[in-house]
Structure formats: structure tokens, C-alpha cells
Design a protein around this nucleic acid. Sequence first.
DNA 1: AATTTATATTGCAATATTACGATAATATAA
DNA 2: TTATATTATCGTAATATTGCAATATAAATT
Lengths: 110, 110
Amino acid sequence: MGVTKTDLFNSTQNELAAYAKVLAHPARIAIIQFLLKAETCCNTTLVGDLGLAQATISQHLKELKNVGIIQGTVEGVSVNYCINPEKWNEIKEKFTELFEGFNPPNCSSC
Amino acid sequence: MGVTKTDLFNSTQNELAAYAKVLAHPARIAIIQFLLKAETCCNTTLVGDLGLAQATISQHLKELKNVGIIQGTVEGVSVNYCINPEKWNEIKEKFTELFEGFNPPNCSSC
DNA sequence: AATTTATATTGCAATATTACGATAATATAA
DNA sequence: TTATATTATCGTAATATTGCAATATAAATT
């Protein structure tokens, strides 16, 4: 065990969970927030800003890149990362759809 | 290691990550979606609907309850769970705030 | 009281995540 | 070419998560 039974759920549920998973770490939230402000940044900048080791930041960037939320372009020796606008909006819409599914509570039993 | 260094991040980042974490499993997404439609349901209903063991559903419900996203009221032998409106809106707003932090890309390097 | 029904908890095995040092890979500068 | 700077990957240790059988708990019914 220790493995999620993805076959029991539909693609929307699995996708939403996957997007949530990549947001489920404060370092990755911090990286995203940094990119929202700075528009672009590289590994070294984040190492200085967050206080995690270079290998750790690199790993978090990889996970963000794997789901497509950020993209990196080689700029000489360093790599510039930035938000992928299309993916960002896609994720935003998926979460918005979930959150808007809530109707005023006329629930009698709680 | 294997433990998140929460002390490196601010409360907003840690909270957002914690909320994302509870959404980071398709079963919990499915439970939430079920509650959004049905307004209320109990463990046994979910066991039949999701196809996971009773103990597993109970565990997922516990995690959802721990962050306050759902609440349960004892109704005879069973427990009726439903969305907690205040918490739901709080979480919704936290995510909305993050997603709205993105401005049109005038980023030159990617 | 004994049985049934519904849920929670415990204990355990399998797997995933987090973090970092060490090292490799790549490109620029001296 | 050698040195420097930046990033990625590998290996490893510590911890977390997922899932379920077994069991415990609690309320309603017989």
C-alpha cells in the first residue's frame, strides 16, 4: 500500500488532486509567490531567498515544472523560470469550478 | 529529514500549503464533491460510492475535519458530515487571492 | 442483556515525500 | 585549457502518506 488508488476516481478528481499536491508545500507556494512578483527568477536567487539547499530548490522547481505550472529557459549559465500563463489559468479555473460548487447551506442536519 | 521546514515560511504560505495538502488526494476531492451535491452524507454512503474500505474513508474524513473543511454531527448511530461554510469560504478566498496574483506576462526572457 | 449498525482507532506494510551532501553536467570567463 | 558559476541528478536518511484488516466504541433495536 502507500499508493493512491487513482483508478477509482475520474480524471477531474485525479487532476485536481495532482495540482493540489504540487501546491501542498510552503516552499513551492513561496516560489510561486516570488515568480508572481518578480516574473522571473533562477535557482540561485531562490536559494538565497528561501533558505533551502540548492538541491532542494532544484527538486521543487522540477515538480512545479512537471505539472507545467512553471517553465524554464536557459539563459547563459543560469535558467530563468517563470509562470506558464496557460497552465496557470487552467489550474485557476479548475479550482474556481470546485469552489463555486458550494451553495448556501439549507442543510437541516448540521 | 523528510520533514517540511515550516519555520522558513510565513503563516500564509504554511496555511495555503496545508489546505492544498488536504485537497491533494482524489478520494478527498470526491468526498467534497459528493458533499457539495448531497449537502450531507455519512461514512457508509461514501464507502459504497467511492469503493474504498471503511477505515480508509474514516481516515480521509478525519483529515478533512482536522482542517475544518467539513463538520460532523452525530445522528443516532451514524454521523452526518457536511461542508463548513465559513471555512470553505476562507479557503476559497485564500486560493483566489493566490490565483489573482498573476498579471499578464510581459516577461522578456521566457 | 444481546444483537445489530455505524464509525473510530490501532497496528502494520508498502510507498511517497522532504532534505541535503556529493557529484555530474553545462556554459561562461580568465 | 583551466577555473568559475549555475543547475541537475544521484544516493541516502528521516519522516509522511495511503490503505486495510482487526478491533474497539457507541447508539439503536430486539
